[in-house]
């Protein structure tokens, strides 16, 4: 981990200190060099994001048709649709289970990893590997593992729990929990590696001093190390929240197609399905706007809940 901290160092250095000396050397014209990337970003990222709000007001039956203005028709259609409420419910369950489990578990595992336990190399390679695997490969791996005659049911039968074996992805009771389990499978180890890298950049003597002072293991972890990286915890929580909320569509598309029924339809998948399978772009983008608003609201909430240590005495 020592080399990781070298990399993390520029991130924590204070760039402001050198600023006054540089300023005399050049004019603000140097910022023109940032223009091409800003234009690129505006055309391919900001533009589409803004267009979402316009498309939400159009009656648009599929990509190859001409849209017409529909005002708030799409909004009333979405808010009268039971599928939309099912998706709200599923997304809420997904986020409410994934985030509170993932963040503390990853922090503890990252803390453990940073203490370089026996077998540390193997652990860190394994924890890291979900970060290398694409969503499409993840989908294929679990398509095999979770199929009725796949690995999970094989294990259950081998240990005599035949009655537990089920078609995990085709059973309305298990489809969403299974997808949530895959989120956790992928996310915990990867986030733990990130926490370990961040913890490695802390001055070693602080944790050492706490230990010598007789602070217990749990106390050192939660009352000394945790407040020191709280800003980072907040950042990772926000990122994981946004990724969990927004990007579930791909895995759902590969594994359950939102079903059975609407049992695993999340808001993210609804955006995708309405646009490409059910050819209602206006509806899809109303949901997209809802998703964006939920993303921003959730971020604000996390920001308040995980205040930095300076604002929060302890």
């Amino acid at each position: 981990m020592s080399s990781t901290s070298t990399l993390a160092r520029p991130a924590t250095a204070r760039p402001t200190r050198t600023r006054p000396r540089k300023r005399g050397l050049h004019s603000p014209h140097v910022l023109w060099l940032a223009v091409p990337s800003l234009v690129w970003f505006a055309v391919f990222a900001v533009g589409p994001l803004a267009a979402m709000f316009v498309i939400a007001t159009l009656r648009w039956k599929g990509l190859l048709y001409e849209p017409t203005y529909a005002g708030t028709e799409n909004i009333s259609k979405v808010f009268a649709d039971p599928t939309f409420y099912a998706a709200i419910r599923n997304s809420t369950v997904q986020v409410a289970v994934v985030i509170p489990l993932m963040i503390p578990l990853s922090f503890m595992l990252g803390y453990h990893l940073n203490s370089r336990p026996r077998g540390y190399r193997i652990l860190s390679i394994l924890y890291f590997s979900p970060g290398l695997i694409s969503i499409s490969v993840t989908g294929m791996v679990f398509y095999g593992v979770l199929s009725p005659d796949g690995g999970v049911n094989g294990v259950l039968r081998a240990v005599g729990l035949d009655t537990w074996a089920t078609a995990w992805l085709a059973d309305p009771g298990t489809a969403l929990p299974t997808l949530i389990a895959i989120d956790l499978w992928r996310g915990i180890g990867w986030t733990a590696v990130l926490f370990a890298a961040r913890l490695a950049s802390l001055p070693a003597d602080v944790l050492e001093a706490a230990r010598i002072d007789g602070a217990g293991r749990l106390r050192t972890m939660w009352q000394i190390a945790f407040p020191m990286v709280k800003d980072y915890v907040r950042t990772l929580t926000m990122l994981q929240y946004l990724w969990t909320l927004f990007t579930s569509a791909a895995l759902i598309l590969l594994l359950t197609k939102g079903g059975p029924g609407t049992s695993s339809t999340t808001l993210s998948y609804l955006v995708y399905a309405k646009a490409f399978a059910q050819r209602d772009l206006g509806y899809s983008q109303v949901v997209g706007v809802v998703l964006l608003l939920l993303g921003i609201a959730g971020m604000a909430l996390i920001h308040v809940l995980l205040r930095s240590p300076r604002e929060n005495p302890r």
Binding site: A45, P48, L49, M52, G288, L292, G295
Partner: peptide, 9 residues
């Protein structure tokens, strides 16, 4: 903001 947000546009 994850890129997925603006997939359809």
């Amino acid at each position: 903001i994850p890129p997925f947000a603006a997939l359809i546009p």
